[in-house]
Design a protein around this nucleic acid. Structure first.
Lengths: 338, 338
DNA sequence: ATGAAAGCGCTAACAG
DNA sequence: CTGTTAGCGCTTTCAT
């Protein structure tokens, strides 16, 4: 590979000049710049990443920690990861992919070695074991998801509390008074990932205000478990006319089982989902839903982290994205409503 | 951050000694090693990645190019990516995440800058535009998926031809004589990704040998398109008793529509899927299937690339993983068979 | 078994 | 506007 020095010689300038045309950190006369750029082309020069990192103590790499565990809805993670990668590139950064496997050790390794300039951490738990380290490091960090205590942290997430509220509001407005929540698998709640609880909280608070009765049931998402869950729901609350589902895997089983039971959607029961748009539009009934803005989350995370890196430390600590509910074919007036 | 020199001073040895205890490239007396290791602990020393890369011209990073496009089944991509990341770590490498977005330019950038020592490319197309560059670079590269011409390349993939054959064999053995193939979306075929064609080829060849009639229909995977596809299939071939599905999105619609039409699985029609285990076991009927060994593909890719990096250039060029068919509840004897 | 020292290729003062 | 130069922290001969 050609080196900076070779380019300099070829262009008849000094090394620093080449360096500066590359970085734009000082003004270069047009002719010089052109000569240098021409030499760069001609020699097929690419700056050496290691040397650059060593000299500037910036690797231009952002580390992204993705969960190893795969019980979350995978396409969302992937979409976030891809959004992070492409947004990062557009800001001149590459992305290092870390799995949760190494846990806190990965944080130490990356910050200690200068491998990455900053870090984006996905799937944060309420009491995440990486939190102390993230607090300690002065390396810019952004979390996707909210831990219990966000003091001193920068986080991005969908406003799940508002999401929950929005779902009941929609159903209440349609006259529904008994609503069942089909939630994530019990394991998700046990792990305290936060978002499930927050949705529930939003749901409950607003339901209380609107006089809607709520029944919450976690659900594995398989046909068997959905079958059981559904029986228990109608057993306990025969008057249930509205469903809020926050569990991608449960959507198809739910719709399918409702159909088999002869309950029409949306004539007999309405269904509102919290899921990616794609899932909502591809289900057997086009679902009224609150979208999970995966792309935007990844993008915002990068922008926040880049702002920190370039010193434009944005004031905001927690960026909560406002939920948007899209009405589709799965929700309608409660039976017996005007 | 502590530097190597500081560790050396702290331990009362020379810098090179510290370097050698780290790399193990020459023998160190036990006491010296201990002193050095102790100092490393005490100072919380982590070697600087940039300096190391510059001095050794090895970054210990493997680049992974994932497709930007999201019309493939995402969980498989994610599973491969995670397998790549964890396997790479276990060999001492980190993984740089590149999206297909930059296209060939990314290859140039990475090889040119020494950012990564090697590259794993996913979702290769038959006539991939990155191929010429990959051929040109002497940087170890492994493809996941097969291009049209694999000469001089190292590739990992499921043996889709054998997969297709396996599927018909299973159905033929059960007495099925008319089989329909529900394939990937037309776009997948148009893009010439190879795997779909190869499955089809295996299917056709073996079907010919076994006297099974085949009907192939691409399918978008939505309920609407599946509905249309299904009608056309039974229209054209009313005697169809077997289905082979290679399209994760089409599975739920297919099962659901068959049920609605009153065709029982597996009593009236048998269904064999080519999909990840998880999808097969979570469908409304537990599916007889050939698994897509995502993890193994990621792992093998890393192992091949690491072998190249460490000079144990394995002889094999194309690693085709043998398909395995697992019989579950969706396939049974053809109606009217003894 | 250990040290000394020469770079690796680039950035960023410091000088004009 | 451009050149000179001193490192950045580590690896790796070459010595001993």
């Amino acid at each position: 590979m050609a080196t900076l020095a070779e380019v300099a010689r070829h262009a008849g300038v000094s090394a620093s000049t080449v360096s500066y045309v590359l970085s734009g950190k000082r003004s270069i006369s047009a002719p010089t710049r052109e000569r240098v750029e021409h030499s760069i082309k001609e020699l097929g020069y690419h700056p050496n990443a290691g040397a650059r990192a060593l000299a500037s103590s910036r690797s231009n790499i952002i580390a992204l920690m993705v969960p190893l565990r795969t019980d979350m809805y995978v396409p969302v993670m992937m979409e976030i990861a891809i959004a992070v990668a492409t947004t990062a590139r557009s800001h001149g950064y590459d992305v290092l992919l870390l799995t949760g496997e190494e846990g806190p050790a990965a944080v130490r390794r990356v910050t200690g070695s200068g491998l990455a300039d900053a870090m984006i951490v996905m799937d944060v738990e309420l009491e995440d074991e990486r939190l102390p380290l993230l607090h300690a490091t002065r390396q810019p960090t952004v979390l996707i998801g909210l831990p219990a205590d966000t003091v001193g942290l920068t986080c991005v997430d969908l406003d799940f509390t508002a999401t929950g509220a929005l779902c009941v509001e929609h159903l209440a407005a349609l006259g529904h008074r008994e609503v069942a929540i089909v939630g994530e698998a019990p394991a998700v709640y046990e792990r305290h990932t936060g978002f499930a609880e927050r949705t529930l909280e939003g749901l409950r608070r607003r339901a209380g205000e609107l006089g809607v009765r709520l029944l919450h049931r976690p659900c594995q998402g398989s046909y068997e478990s959905m079958d059981g869950t559904l029986s228990r729901i109608f057993d306990e609350r025969p008057g249930t006319t509205g469903f809020v589902v926050q569990n991608e895997a449960a959507i198809d089983p739910l719709l399918s089982l409702l159909r088999r039971q002869g309950r029409a959607v949306p004539e007999d029961v309405s269904v509102v989902a919290v899921c990616p748009e794609q899932v909502a539009t591809q289900a057997s009934v086009r679902l009224t839903s609150v979208a999970i803005p995966a792309q935007e989350m990844g993008q915002r995370a990068v922008e926040l982290v880049v702002a920190k890196l370039e010193g434009n430390a944005s004031g905001e600590q927690v960026a909560l994205l406002a939920p948007e509910l899209t009405v589709r074919a799965s929700s309608g007036p409660a039976p017996g409503t005007a």
